[in-house]
Design a protein around this nucleic acid. Structure first.
Lengths: 332, 332
DNA sequence: CAACGCTACTGGAACGCTCCAGACGGGTCT
DNA sequence: AGACCCGTCTGGAGCGTTCCAGTAGCGTTG
């Protein structure tokens, strides 16, 4: 650390080497219009040969902006999250901003701590991709910087924009697919009371009612899987299930196969999310896919608008789509 | 943005409110010894009621340290990475440092860009959890800040510490397990020429030789899976396979079952990594597990030492262990 | 009791940048 | 010709810290 760069070159070094003032270097580098073309190229050339890199800390301090977005995720290993992050990064990069990620390890307290830390670091805004961040942490963050939330539909109005997939439409898509195949006895398998899960559950009920069919919701933690399989084995039981998410659907598939139930010939299953697991189980899981990258891009777009002074907080819902694989077929 | 906090309180606000100089506030907050107990508690109380938060940007500028570590990963959705990150975060938090993550999306160019960006943001050091970062990007980063590399064993010496799992020992573990069960015809299935994969392949060969058995390596992209299964179906063929990683093992398992081969009764399979997929396939995959959290903690420990002035770069290897699930049994 | 050494505290420079008010020439307009 | 403007460039203040060289107050000591 001694024989190499004695110190990173600063704007002053560039100015001296180019024979201009530091202010002009600053303007040239930021592409200000009031710099003649000749001097700009000269300054940039000098900066380049000196290996000058703008100090983000100093810029952030002086300007109040760091040109970096923060993304808070609760579970890195969830591919849903990484796809959303990819969308965010693509959009941010297009606008010349960098991105850092904070990882909450599925723990609300850690999540809140990471959020504070990213804000302390000076990010210009934050996108929260996690349903488990405490509401008050979200509020205090929103008071400091623009915040966009991905995935959680909000009850009360907050100073936060929201981007989410249209769970209601997704559930309707799943039910319609099963009905098109000829199923009547379609049960919903729920595993959570969280907002997205509830939206799917309610939309399932409405879709069934609209079709003039009775709706039944079973809960995983009340032995719903066993009940469902026991019923499906009998000839009068349900012939299909719409599960609230892919993990639940995969567990159901596993147990159904173990019970000797033929999927999809004797029993069809639809999941939600198009998670990695949907491609890994056999047969592949038919599932409702969220437009994950698009969600990320939209979230970044909203955040950038807020950073640029837009006051309005909005809620955007994007359309899910159905991915048909091997767990659905006409009932026999 | 106007009616709320007109501006975040600074150290000067705290000083004024407490009736002391800003220098003293700075010392008190950082826990300097030369502050009397009485004034320290008073200052901290004032800071607290004012909601003062130290400005990381200003501190970083003045001090040259931000108390934040950067972690560069190439693939967020790989659970190996998230476990390592968890270990890093645990250790960093214990030392009072924060952590930000840069995500390379599996693209070397993006990876290098994120690395630069994190360094620009002023992180005190970086842990690289990715085998695909270009060597020159690693070198320029190492010239700027301390860097610790996870997982890639290095050929030539660099200004970088390395933490990795002991691939040689892991391969030996897998082979020993199969030999203990009574297997003699054990084939290695390789899918990559990367360093870790090569180490495992060579160690497999040595372990077989040591046991006086012939070693055979088949390559996935040369039709190795088909060759292997064709051989295993016959009665004189191999009875077991050690695959270079879990993804390869899972693919082999899939095709073997499709070919009517009974796993593990007629054919045993061992993978490497204990990836998520090892738990999701049926039967569950016997595999060599890396001590992922420990790797992360160790990497953070080394980085913190480097940040505190330690000049030496070291290479640490941690012991893998064997996780026995359902794809291994005695040959029939 | 002057000299000394502590402990507790202070003021200003420095970190590298942005922003603002203005300077300096050389047109253009009247 | 004087007033004015416009494009280009400059110097200094300021962002919120840390760090360094002091200073004041006070008890010890020879």
């Amino acid at each position: 650390m001694h024989s190499t760069d004695h110190a990173a070159p600063t704007i002053v070094d560039v100015a001296r080497a180019a024979g201009v003032s530091k202010s002009l270097v600053s303007l040239a580098i930021r592409g200000d219009a009031g710099v003649s073309e000749a001097t700009r190229t000269r300054i940039l050339a000098v900066a380049d040969t000196l290996g000058y890199r703008s100090n983000v800390l100093a810029r952030g301090l002086a300007r109040g902006r760091t040109q970096v977005l923060g993304v808070l995720v609760s579970d890195l290993s969830n591919p849903y999250h990484s796809d959303v992050v990819a969308g965010i990064e693509a959009r941010a990069e297009g606008a010349g901003l960098g991105t850092v990620i904070g990882h909450g390890q599925g723990d609300p307290a850690v999540l809140a701590a990471r959020l504070d830390q990213m804000l302390d670091l000076g990010v210009d805004g934050v996108i929260v991709v996690s349903a488990m961040l405490p509401a008050e942490a979200l509020d205090t963050a929103a008071a400091r910087r623009p915040v966009v939330m991905v995935g959680r539909p909000f009850e009360q109005p907050r100073r936060v924009s929201v981007v989410r997939n249209h769970d209601e439409r997704g559930a309707a898509l799943a039910v319609a697919h099963l009905q098109d195949l000829g199923h009547h006895g379609i049960v919903h398998l729920a595993s959570s009371h969280r907002a997205a899960a509830s939206a799917r559950r309610l939309a399932y009920g409405e879709a069934m009612t609209r079709a003039g069919l009775p709706s039944t919701t079973l809960w995983v933690d009340e032995g719903g899987v066993e009940t469902l399989i026991a019923g499906a084995v009998g000839s009068a039981g349900p012939t299909a299930c719409f599960a609230g998410n892919d993990r639940t659907a995969a567990a159901l598939l596993h147990d159904a196969l173990d019970a000797g139930l033929d999927v999809p010939a004797a029993f069809s299953i639809v999941g939600y999310d198009d998670a990695q697991i949907a491609r890994q189980v056999r047969p592949g899981l038919t599932t409702v896919a969220q437009p994950r990258e698009a969600i990320g891009r939209e979230a970044a777009r909203l955040l950038l608008a807020r950073i640029d002074g837009d006051k309005d907080t909005v809620e955007v819902t994007l359309e899910p789509s159905l991915t048909v694989r091997g767990t659905t077929a006409a009932p026999c």
